[in-house]
Simulated assay, not measured.
Amino acid sequence: MTESDLCTRAIAYLKPVEQDSTPAISLSREDSPVFQPFTNDLLVSYVVDAGDRLAFVQHRHLDKERVSVDQLHSMAVSNLQALAEEKLVVRQYGAIYVALMGGNFEASLLTLDVMWTHWYAHLAPDGFVAAAPARDLLAFCDASSVQGLVELRQVVERSWNCDHPLHPHLYRRTGARWQQSSITH
């Protein structure tokens, strides 16, 4: 994989905020991955598919390509949208919907506003609640669906030992933002 134009090929990718604030290793700013806050427990990072792995966009790539963090975010969300337009399938299971897209970017779809405001808005007239307990798992329902909320909690419970975990929370979409949900139905 060449490092040219990494920023233009980046895809928005959610990562958990680590509760342990002691870093395992210390990196210079240039070698540090670019992160932006998404929720109080999730960060948006930016990755490029390198075939056998995902390579993180680092601050040195921004400097080299003269790209701002905001520009990177815009390009990465646009690239995620293009990927979703090509691969995304949403299936209904009981009272919830599950997003399927190949295994790396399902949870990252939370960053894709068009998905929630246009593509699937009709599925949740009372707003969205979603579970994204791992990078490859995104389920959602209408916020008014008591059965949907029960099923989302079951998805979270079944995913406790998954690869690439995020957090075992439900998220509520309020306006254009996702927030950890305190829904207790």
Rank of each mutant, 00 (worst) to 15 (best):
R135V: 12
H61F: 15
L149F: 04
L100T: 10
E30H: 03
W178L: 01
T2L: 13
R60Q: 14
L14C: 06
Q154W: 13
A143Y: 05
V67L: 10
A10E: 02
D63H: 14
P165W: 09
T39D: 11
K87E: 12
Q154H: 12
M101F: 09
G127K: 05
P168V: 06
D136T: 01
S26W: 09
W160G: 03
H73C: 08
V44C: 13
I11P: 00
A10Y: 04
L123K: 06
P165G: 02
R66Y: 09
A139Q: 08
N104Q: 14
W119F: 06
H122D: 11
V146L: 14
V57T: 06
L152A: 05
Q36F: 09
H59P: 07
A124I: 05
M101K: 08
Y13V: 03
R172Q: 15
W119M: 03
G148D: 09
D163Q: 05
T184Y: 10
S145M: 04
T174I: 14
A132Q: 07
H169E: 10
P125W: 04
L123W: 02
R177A: 13
E86T: 13
L43I: 08
D52N: 11
F128L: 03
L137N: 01
L152P: 04
T184F: 11
A76K: 03
E3D: 15
D163E: 10
S4R: 14
A84E: 10
F105S: 02
L149I: 13
R158V: 01
Q154D: 15
Q71T: 12
